[in-house]
Design a protein around this nucleic acid. Sequence first.
DNA 1: CAGTGGTCTAGACCACTGA
DNA 2: CAGTGGTCTAGACCACTGA
Lengths: 234, 234
Amino acid sequence: MPAKAPYARVKEFLKQGLACGHWQPGALMPSDSELVTQFGVSRMTVTRALRELQNEGLVTRVQGLGTYAAHLFRVSSTLTIRDLHEEILSRGHRHHAEVHIARQEDATAAVAAQLGLPKGTAVFHTLIVHFENNLALQCEDRYVNPACAPDYLATDFTQITPTHYLLQVAPLWEAQYSIEAGSPSAREARLLGIPAQEPCLIIVRRTVNRGIPITMARLVHPGSRYRVEGAFKP
Amino acid sequence: MPAKAPYARVKEFLKQGLACGHWQPGALMPSDSELVTQFGVSRMTVTRALRELQNEGLVTRVQGLGTYAAHLFRVSSTLTIRDLHEEILSRGHRHHAEVHIARQEDATAAVAAQLGLPKGTAVFHTLIVHFENNLALQCEDRYVNPACAPDYLATDFTQITPTHYLLQVAPLWEAQYSIEAGSPSAREARLLGIPAQEPCLIIVRRTVNRGIPITMARLVHPGSRYRVEGAFKP
DNA sequence: CAGTGGTCTAGACCACTGA
DNA sequence: CAGTGGTCTAGACCACTGA
C-alpha cells in the first residue's frame, strides 16, 4: 500500500477536526500559510486539499479573510438517475417495454412552453410502459423536440429506451427534475395495472443541451414497486 | 469583468468538445502534454482542468493510457436536503411545530438494528408535526441514539428542529435515504389532517457519524404539499 | 499595510501501460 | 522504451479585506 499523498493527509487532518467539532460551523480555520508550515508542504498542495473540501461543501473560503468551517445546514447528496433498462438488468431481472403511443403531434401550449417552441409546433410524443419481470414499473410519457432528434420515432422502443437513445444523440445533459407523490391518471392506472387510488412516485424531468430543450418526461411509478435511494457523505 | 482563468479556458474547451460530440463516449482525448502545448500553459493548469472534469464525471483518466470521454449512462445530480425550518423561512413563510411525543423508550428490534444497539436499549423518540403557514407539511417520526446526543430531550422542539439540533451536536454526517410514495398510517393521516388515502411522499433517512449511527427518521409529507426538486448539470 | 485566498509557472520524480 | 497521468516543489503576481 502506497503512503498517503501529502494533499490527502492535509485534507484528512482538516476533515477530522471538522468531524470532531474542533472547528465549529463558522469558525476560522488555519490559513494556507499556517498549513504550509505545519505540514512542511508547498502551498499548491495545501490549496488542493482546501479546494476539494470547498467543493465538498465542508469549508468556505473568502479572499482576504480566510477559511471557515461551513454551516452544514444544507447537505447535498448524489442522486443517481439511471437508464431504467440498465437498472433492471443490473438487478438480474428481465426488462420489456410496451409502446402505446409513438407519433408526431402538434404541441399543446404547456408542452410548447416547456420545450421552448411556438404553440402548435410538431413534436414527438411517446407513451411507453416498462416492465420488470412482467410487472409494470414505470409509465413514461415523453415529448421530444424534433430538432434535437429527428430520427427519434424510427427507434424501436421495445429494444432501446428513449433515455438511452437520447443520451446517444445528445451526450451532455442538463436537467431539472421534481419528485412527488400523487395519484395516477385513469389511463396511467390502467396501463400500470394498479388501482386508481394507489400512491405513485412521479418524477417530472426536463432536459436541456447547450441551452436547447431536448425533452420532457413524466415518469409514473407504482409506489409499492419503486423508490429512489441515495446516500450522502461529507 | 476579469478575463477567464487559464484553467477555466482549458476546461471550457474540453467541455464544448464533449457537448458537441467531437469526442464520443470512450474516445481518447488530448493528453496533458498536448494541451500544455496547445494552450501554452503549465501542466499544473491543465491538470486542474482535467481533474475537475474527472470529478464531474465527464472524463476518465487512466495512468499510462490517457484521458477518455466518459460514458454518460449514469448521470448524477445534487439533491439538496435542507433543514425544514430554514426551508420554510426562506420562502418567507411561517413555521411552527407540534410536539406529540418526546420521551425515552426501549428500542424495538427494528429500531435497535438500525441504530446498531442491542434490542431493548433506551433510545430517544420524538414525533413532531411541522407546519408551513398553519398547514401541516411534515410528520417527523425520529429515533435518536442517546450516546450521541444525551441532552436531546431537553431541547425545545417547538423552537429548534431535531435536524438543526443534531447538526450542531454532530456536524459531519453520512446518511442513506430512500424516497417513496405511499399511504400515511392512520395516526399520520390524523396528525397531518389529510384523508387516509392521500398519497404521501415518504423519506426514510438513517444518519451515521464516524461510523456510529446517530438517528433514523421517517418523514411523511402530503403529496399535494411537498416535493423534492433538483437539477443536474454535466 | 500585512495577511488572506486565487491562480499560475517551470520544473521534477514517480508508477503505470503497451510496444 | 517513450508516453501517460499523479503528484509535488518553490517560487510568483494578483485582488481582496480590515486595521
